[in-house]
């Protein structure tokens, strides 16, 4: 039986404890923000993919990642870099992440746009597709505002972002 985990595994597990500062049901790993982890002796470097370039949460996330990784006893130094390649898109969110968003009351981004470029999301409360887009822009860069005509709830949806 293997009892000791590799340092990289430990780092990965610590990163799975870091949540989005505003949406505390989803981890940054499930948001698809984790790039490479590289380890040189006791120094850990974590590459992260920024969701939106102007997102003010990026600084907070960076601090939280440093804090979480430093909790591992053998780690002496942590460096976090935001990288632009590969670019983050809303398809980077994991299946688990999509469920976590729903739990918070945010519809996950549409996985596929229609052939004419339009897209639809289902209400995170009742599942209905009978809803209207009130504002493509929302309370944060990554979210849009919608209204469900079925259950009469306003809700937010992750804005679809792609590099097509």
């Amino acid at each position: 039986m293997k009892v000791s985990h590799s340092l990289e595994e430990k780092v990965r597990r610590q990163l799975e404890t870091v949540c989005d500062p505003e949406i505390d049901t989803i981890t940054i790993v499930d948001l698809g923000m984790l790039g490479n982890i590289s380890i040189r002796e006791n120094k850990v470097t974590v590459d992260l993919l920024p969701t939106f370039l102007g997102c003010p949460a990026l600084g907070i996330i960076k601090e939280n990642v440093i804090k979480a990784v430093k909790e591992i006893s053998e780690v002496e130094e942590v460096e976090v870099n935001y990288i632009n390649n590969p670019p983050w898109t809303s398809a980077s969110i994991t299946e688990k992440g999509r469920e976590a968003l729903k739990q918070f009351g945010i519809a996950p981004p549409p996985t596929q746009a229609n052939s004419d470029g339009s897209w639809h999301v289902d209400c995170p409360y009742c599942g209905s597709a009978y809803n209207t887009l009130e504002n493509i822009f929302g309370p944060s860069a990554c979210r849009s505002l919608l209204y469900c005509k079925e259950c009469k709830n306003p809700f937010e949806a992750m804005k679809p972002i792609s590099t097509l």
Partner: peptide
């Protein structure tokens, strides 16, 4: 008010682009 939400979001993104 919806324009306030939209325009400030655009401005925040664009400021992010200049920062990069």
């Amino acid at each position: 008010i919806e324009e306030d939400v939209a325009y400030s979001s655009i401005v925040q993104n664009t400021m992010g682009h200049s920062a990069v």
